[in-house]
Simulated scan of single mutants.
Amino acid sequence: MAAGGFCRLPNGMVVVALNLPSPAIDGSTGVRVLIHAQNRARALTRLRNLGMRAVYLRGNAAPPTPDEITAVLHHPDGLIWRTAPDNGVTPPELWHPIRALLRRPASPV
């Protein structure tokens, strides 16, 4: 389950924003994922197809900001992430393609 929200664009498409727990073991605060898709169901399906099976959007408590919408619309994949800010004081991290989040470190030989 994840906190998040969505915003419908004038052309009928949506931008979905989700706050997910961090996949890293270091105990960081989590990640904010943005998905640009035809509708909310397709946005969640895109994440589930990447292996994030337990992702659901309930409510609209944390919709994407205008800056987040601009970022995801200008990314060719329409699927980006960055670490979720733990407070409003630290500067935001740059957005990364979803491949960077799912990349596994190479095991030593």
Rank of each mutant, 00 (worst) to 15 (best):
T65W: 10
L18W: 03
A100S: 15
P97E: 01
V72F: 13
I98L: 02
P92V: 07
C7W: 08
G30I: 06
P64I: 12
T65M: 08
S107I: 06
G51I: 09
T83G: 05
V55Y: 00
V55N: 00
E93G: 09
L18A: 05
G4N: 00
I35W: 01
I98D: 01
I35H: 00
R48E: 00
V16A: 06
A84H: 14
C7R: 14
H74A: 12
H96K: 11
P76T: 03
A3H: 02
M1Y: 13
H96S: 05
R104D: 07
I80G: 03
R48Q: 11
M1E: 08
A61Q: 10
I25M: 14
R82A: 13
L57K: 01
E93M: 11
V14E: 08
R42M: 12
L44Q: 02
S22A: 09
R8K: 12
R32Y: 02
T83V: 02
S107Q: 15
A43S: 05
G30S: 05
E68I: 09
R58T: 12
T83A: 03
A24R: 15
P64F: 09
L18N: 02
V31C: 06
L101R: 08
R99N: 15
T65P: 00
L79N: 09
L50N: 04
S28L: 09
P23G: 12
A43T: 00
W95Q: 04
